[in-house]
Design a protein around this nucleic acid. Structure first.
Lengths: 371, 371
DNA sequence: GTGAAAGCGCTAACAA
DNA sequence: TTGTTAGCGCTTTCAC
């Protein structure tokens, strides 16, 4: 049986009223310094903790943040969400929030879970992962004015896709990877990615295309790493502006490089055959940038004796570390912290809400033997 | 703003009193069939969900299960907890429980977190992972009579280490791995594990030693897989009995095989040098069983051209899949389900509690190219 | 089988 | 600055 110390016990022990105890906790500035210290001391001594359920009934705030935990396809990149989750739990705790988990098979069942959760546990906010085009979840939450932040940009320009988000600049990552290869002397660098239409995949392809286009324009190659490290965190970036600019031109150039790329579903086997295909089609190809470590792992296996091929993956998963694969690392702990910060700010002051707040974090290239 | 439908709304809409609605939900047998159906229909139509905070205030039950999420050392086996967590979330939801996350650096700070959580959110139970010798957490929880289940056996015979647990039979896993190698014709099979003292590591070493001892006694090798598949789930096994029996003798035999094994800290680099060491020391060694995929990944890299060495890892992590490493797979979803079941049973009837309930699950060998 | 009353622990208003 | 009052939504007695 857990000892239960109520606010009444503290009040009695401290010789004050229950309100004074409550005020000491919730509005310290309204209590006399001396009284405050005394009450705090008694609270400490008695090991008192405000009952969250009672507090919630009164305030309507649960101090709970809900997030989905997914079964991660082939498991290779599963650790990404795992690391993000750990960071989220840690940062949230510092802000006085706890993380509540749930599972869902698709957008529709996830929305049903929202309804469930909102009716019962009433989490103060949600964190969305794996955002995609025409995400039903964001519009549902937006319609109801429920606080949430997405880890991942809204891959759509629709007005109802405007919401707070935190993301990692994937294009900057593949651009840095490509520049690194260019700096190492590689001239024909291929790309293995996913079929067009997935925001994340298109973004990563763009970084590769951009670096190649820049190299053709004769850009200084010694600044190889800058693509990643210079992409400083930005707040309030307008989404529309974000999606055009010089990238569009780079993308066009990239299309001209069609012969150098393949688009396949994610997976080791797919990566292997795509790499084999690419290597056979272009005898001068000496390096490959991949949209994921799974694909890169496959590409590694496609290499043949006598023909060295540099390979770079994405996500810096444990598997990459295990086989010495150079990979683009996402700052997951920072991303999680940014999510919590955005939420905490929105929850503390629901009034002055800037409708869209974004944080774009730069990834970093982890160089290992493979490139 | 989340629409809030209270029990009063349902009562009014259904033309009954609030109690009848509450009874329909909590004691259906006490309500007339017809009334019950009508009320249920109104609940459905209005989308009513009992407010968990209010319910908790009355009943003292939060329907929350807390578990720690760890940062996972080198990340290779991080996916193990990840998969377990997913299963836990899913099964718990089916039983009407939600998973609450927290982090902690060590036993002591984890206990501090228990106090925090118990004071505020009052989770109904805890799930412990990574149990070890002299686990402070189990005794702390046991002393206070708090419901919990450990994923991992209590690696101690102390009376205060008696509590419900769910675990995977690691010894059966390494035994099956070793038998598989024996069946494939290998005669000198080494083992790379962790320093003695870690329950999990010792257990895995024992399975290897046991299989080797059995082969020396001339046991039929055609039943290779049975070690794992026959170790059916058992309930109520006494821990003391569990830790002796034929294993003790096998362990003795294993000790005689000292030259065939190495004990190092977990990690790829450590696995590689241990394997190199072992292979140099025994020119006839043709196969290696490892206590983890990290070690096995290292062993794989230690192989030299011209000397094929079969390697088997443990945990069937994504990295193993990526490089084609044969590995022992833990039935994580089943383990999670067993944890939830044990807890649910204990929570439904706190009266008739069997003080120690155990579930030992058999792992399975996933055969790939490496062996 | 159904309805009325009480109270879980807390905090927002108001009164002193 | 401190104390008093009321009530969040629910379930558990206890009458009816």
């Amino acid at each position: 049986m857990a000892e239960k110390v109520t606010i009444t016990d503290v009040a009695r022990a401290a010789g004050v009223s229950r309100q004074t105890v409550s005020n000491t906790l919730n509005s310290p500035e309204v209590v006399r310094e001396e009284t405050r210290r005394h009450v705090l001391e008694v609270i400490e001594r008695l090991g008192y903790r405000a009952n969250q359920a009672a507090r919630q009934m009164r305030t309507g705030r649960s101090r709970l943040i809900a997030i989905r935990i997914e079964p991660d396809g082939d498991g290779i990149s599963g650790s990404v969400l795992d690391r993000f989750l750990h960071g989220l739990t840690e940062t949230a705790a510092q802000e006085g929030y706890r993380i509540l988990l749930y599972t869902a098979a698709d957008d529709r069942s996830e929305i049903a879970t929202y309804e469930d959760l909102l009716g019962a546990y009433k989490p103060d906010a949600f964190v969305l992962t794996a955002t995609h085009h025409d995400d039903l979840r964001t519009s549902w939450l937006l319609e109801r004015g429920l606080p949430f932040v997405a880890f991942g940009r809204p891959w759509s320009d629709l007005p109802d896709a405007r919401h707070p988000w935190v993301d990692v600049d994937g294009a900057a990552g593949t651009e840095a990877a490509t520049r690194h290869l260019l700096a190492a002397g590689h001239r024909r660098i291929g790309f293995i990615g996913w079929p067009p239409g997935s925001g994340v995949g298109d973004d990563r392809r763009e970084g590769w295309a951009r670096a190649l286009a820049a190299s053709q324009r004769g850009t200084d190659l010694t600044t190889s790493q800058q693509g990643a490290t210079l992409a400083a965190s930005q707040q309030g970036t307008d989404l529309a502006a974000f999606r055009q600019g010089p990238d569009a031109a780079a993308s066009q150039q990239g299309a001209a490089l069609g012969g150098l790329q393949r688009a396949v579903e994610d997976g080791i086997a797919a990566g292997e055959s795509a790499a084999r295909d690419l290597l056979a089609a272009d005898p001068e190809l000496t390096a490959l940038v991949c949209a994921s470590d799974s694909l890169a792992l496959g590409a590694l296996q496609a290499r043949e004796p006598g023909r060295p091929v540099a390979v770079i993956g994405f996500d810096d998963t444990p598997a990459a570390k295990a086989v010495g694969l150079t990979s683009v690392n996402q700052p997951l702990a920072e991303a999680a912290a940014a999510c919590v910060e955005l939420l905490a700010r929105a929850l503390e002051s629901p009034d002055a809400e800037p409708p869209s707040t974004h944080v774009l974090l730069p990834p970093s290239l982890i160089i290992r033997q493979s490139a």
